[in-house]
Design a protein around this nucleic acid. Structure first.
Length: 556
RNA sequence: GUCUCAGUAGCUCAGUAGGAUAGAGCAACAGCCUUCUAAGCUGUGGGUCGCAGGUUCGAAUCCUGCCUGGGACACCA
C-alpha cells in the first residue's frame, strides 16, 4: 500500500550492503540511513548524507566514502538511473523513470484506504481530549483542542494504531454544586422571581437557557420543594443538560467519542481510595497541617501536593490520579491527554503520580494546546459581544462554517498560539486555504464528469509511462508521499502536517491544470493516463480532507 | 522569582532525533481567461532565522546565558 516506502527501503538496503562491501563499517556500526527528498531537482529524487555520518567511523573524508559506496552499489537492483556525489559528500540518486509507476494503480485500488499503513503496529493508544467541565458551553479554546484531538485520533486509526477517544466528565466536586445553584437561580428568574445569582455562579447564557427550559417544562413545581431535594434536582438536570449541549456542539463539530468517563464513578466504585492506598503503601504520602499530601517532589515536581484537604474533601488532583490509574489499568500502551496551555503547570504532578503508582512515565503523554486569538476587521476580539465571555464554538461555526474552523485550527502546530482571522476564514477567495484545497477537488470532479459526457473512457486501461511532463511527475511524487505523511503526523502527534500536505498537493494540481490539458481527443492514450492521474489526486485530496473532517465538495 | 510555549520575509506561519542556495500563503509589483471551473496560474522583489557565546566537517535546529511576548505557578477546578 505504500509504494514509495518500498522503493526507499530497497534503496536503503542496497546502500547498507554497499557500505559493508566497501569495508567502511560493520553492519552494527552503520547509523540509520536517512533518505531525503531534495527540494532542488538537480539533487536527484533521493539523497543521503550517510557518507558524512560515516566519516568518523571509517576515518576517511566523506567524498571518498561516497565514492566507495557508489562503486559497491548494485544499481540495477535498486532501479537507479544515475548517482552523483555532491557538496560535502551527499550522494544523490536519480531513479529510473518507472519508480513512480505503481503510484496510480496503488491509489486507484486502495481508494478510501489510500494513506493507511500499519506503522503503529497495533499499538493501543488512548486519547483523552476536550473533557470540559459541564458548567457551560464550549468556547473557541476548547474547540481547538477538540479539532486537534479528533484529527490526532484519525491519524492513529489510519496508521495502524488501535485508538480510543475518551471524554472525562467532571461531574463531581463543587463546580457541580455551583452549577446547581446557578441553574436554580436562573429557574426562579425564568419564573419571574427576583432572585440573585450566587456569588461565583456561572453567568453564561447557556445556564440561562437551561433555567428557562426547566421552568417551561416543570412550571413552578420546584418552587416550594424542600431545599436539598430542589438543589439535587437542579444539579442533576443542570449537569445532564449542560452535557447534552456540549455533546451536541461536538457532534456538529464532527467530533465523537468512544467513551464518556464519569468522575463520579470513581467515587462509587472505590477507585479513589484504591489509588490513595497504592500511593500510601508505596510511601509517597504524608500528613501535615491536618491534610494528606503527595510527595510529588520525589519525581521532580516543584512542590508537594495536597490530596485530602483539612476539611476531609479531595482536591481536584486526587480523583484525577485515580482516573489515570484506571486508564493505565485498562491496558493501553500509551495514554495521551490534550490539555489547554492554562493547565501546563499540572503536567509534572500528574507525571509524578503516574510514576508513584508504579507505571512507566513514557506511557503518559500530554499535548498542550496554545491559546486562540480571534481577529475581525484587523482587530483582536477576545470576548463575545453577546455573552461577554469567550466566543462560543457554536457562534464560530455559525459565522464562518465548520470546514473553515476545523481547517484553521488544525493547520497550525499545537504549540504555537493561533491567530484566527474571521474575515479570512469567511472569505470565498483564493486567500482562503480551505477553499483553495476544496476547489482543487471540485475541479477534478468537473473534469471527470466532462470526460464522461465527452465519451472518454474512465475506468479503462492506461499507460503510466506516458506521464512524463514535469508537473505530472511532481504530482506522482507528492501522491506517493501521502502514506508516509500520515504515519509521520501520527507518530509525531502533528496533525498540522496534513493540511500542509494537502495544500501543497492542491497547488501542484492547480499548476498542472493550467499547464496541461487533460481531455484531448487527439491524444486518447495520454488522456486515459491523465484521467487516471486525476482520479488518483482526487482520491488523495479527499482522503486527506477526511482525516481532518473537512468536506471535499464535488462542485463549488 | 520558578516552570513552560513562542520569537524565521511587511503580516500569518511551516521547517527543529544537525545537512546542500532557509520555504509557503497573504500583502506589493508585472503578466495570463474565444480552450476541462480565473475560488486558478506564471514571474519579480523581500531574511544579521530575537541577541551573545559554545559544541563540529556542518547549527534556524543541540548546549549555556540574556532580551521580548503569551500562559501557569491554591488545602480552585
Amino acid at each position: 500500500m505504500n509504494v514509495l516506502q518500498q522503493t526507499e527501503d530497497n534503496l536503503k538496503q542496497e546502500i547498507s550492503t554497499a557500505v559493508v562491501q566497501a569495508a567502511l563499517a560493520e553492519t552494527a556500526d552503520i547509523p540509520e540511513i536517512v533518505l531525503e527528498k531534495p527540494k532542488d531537482k538537480a539533487h536527484g529524487d533521493f539523497a543521503t548524507n550517510i557518507a558524512m555520518q560515516l566519516a568518523r567511523i571509517a576515518k576517511k573524508p566523506p567524498r571518498k566514502i561516497a565514492e566507495d559506496i557508489m562503486e559497491n552499489l548494485d544499481q540495477t537492483k535498486a532501479s537507479i538511473k544515475k548517482i552523483e556525489i555532491a557538496g560535502p559528500g551527499f550522494i544523490n540518486f536519480f531513479m529510473k523513470q518507472d519508480f513512480l509507476g505503481e503510484v496510480i494503480p496503488t491509489i486507484l485500488e486502495a481508494k478510501d484506504a489510500y494513506g493507511q499503513t500499519n506503522a503503529g503496529g497495533g499499538e493501543k493508544v488512548q486519547v483523552e481530549f476536550v473533557s470540559v467541565n459541564p458548567t457551560g458551553d464550549l468556547h473557541l479554546g476548547h474547540a481547538r483542542g477538540a479539532a486537534f484531538g479528533d484529527v490526532l485520533c484519525n491519524l492513529f486509526a489510519a496508521s495502524g494504531y488501535q485508538v480510543e477517544r475518551e471524554y472525562y466528565i467532571n461531574d463531581a466536586g463543587n463546580q457541580i454544586d455551583k452549577l446547581g445553584l446557578s441553574v436554580e437561580a436562573r429557574y426562579f428568574q425564568a419564573l419571574g422571581k427576583d432572585v440573585d445569582m450566587p456569588e461565583d455562579g456561572y453567568r453564561g447564557k447557556d445556564v440561562v437557557e437551561i433555567g428557562k427550559a426547566l421552568a417551561a417544562e416543570y412550571g413552578d413545581k420546584w418552587e416550594q420543594a424542600e431545599s436539598t431535594d430542589r438543589l439535587n434536582f437542579f444539579k442533576e438536570h443542570g449537569l445532564q443538560r449542560a452535557l447534552a449541549r456540549i455533546e451536541m456542539d461536538l457532534n456538529d463539530f464532527r467530533v465523537h467519542f468512544d467513551h464518556w468517563f464519569s468522575e463520579r464513578s470513581l467515587y462509587k466504585n472505590g477507585k479513589i481510595t484504591e489509588a490513595l492506598s497504592t500511593l500510601e503503601a508505596a510511601n509517597y504520602t504524608f500528613k501535615q497541617d491536618g491534610a494528606t499530601w503527595f510527595r510529588s517532589t520525589d519525581f521532580g515536581d516543584d512542590k508537594d501536593r495536597v490530596l485530602i484537604k483539612q476539611d476531609g474533601s479531595y482536591t481536584y488532583l486526587t480523583p484525577d490520579i485515580a482516573y489515570h490509574k484506571d486508564k493505565l489499568d485498562r491496558g493501553f500502551d500509551k495514554i495521551i491527554n490534550v490539555w489547554g496551555s492554562d493547565h501546563h503547570g499540572y503536567v509534572p504532578r500528574m507525571r509524578a503520580a503516574i510514576q508513584a503508582l508504579g507505571y512507566e512515565k513514557e506511557k503518559f503523554d500530554v499535548k498542550i494546546i496554545q491559546m486562540v486569538n480571534l481577529f475581525e476587521n484587523g482587530e483582536k476580539i477576545k470576548m463575545s459581544k453577546r455573552t461577554g465571555k469567550a466566543v462560543a464554538l457554536r457562534e464560530l461555526m455559525d459565522e464562518v462554517g465548520i470546514d473553515a474552523v476545523r481547517y484553521f485550527f488544525v493547520a497550525r502546530s499545537n504549540d504555537s498560539q493561533l491567530d484566527f482571522d474571521m474575515d479570512l476564514a469567511r472569505s470565498e477567495s483564493n486567500e482562503n486555504p480551505v477553499y483553495y484545497v476544496q476547489y482543487a477537488h471540485a475541479r477534478i470532479c468537473t473534469m471527470l464528469k466532462q470526460a464522461e459526457t465527452k465519451g472518454f473512457t474512465i475506468d479503462g486501461d492506461f499507460d503510466v509511462s506516458l506521464l512524463t511532463a514535469e508537473k505530472e511527475v511532481n504530482l506522482l511524487k507528492k501522491l506517493g508521499e501521502f502514506p508516509q505523511v500520515v504515519a509521520d503526523a501520527a507518530q509525531k502527534s502533528a496533525p498540522h502536517k496534513v493540511p500542509q500536505y494537502v495544500f501543497d498537493l492542491a497547488t501542484l494540481l492547480h499548476s498542472f491544470y493550467n499547464a496541461e490539458k487533460v481531455l484531448d481527443a487527439d491524444h486518447q492514450e495520454r488522456t486515459s493516463a491523465r484521467i487516471a492521474l486525476m482520479e488518483a489526486v482526487r482520491i488523495t485530496i479527499a482522503n486527506a480532507l477526511k482525516l481532518i473532517h473537512v468536506n471535499a465538495p464535488e462542485k463549488m
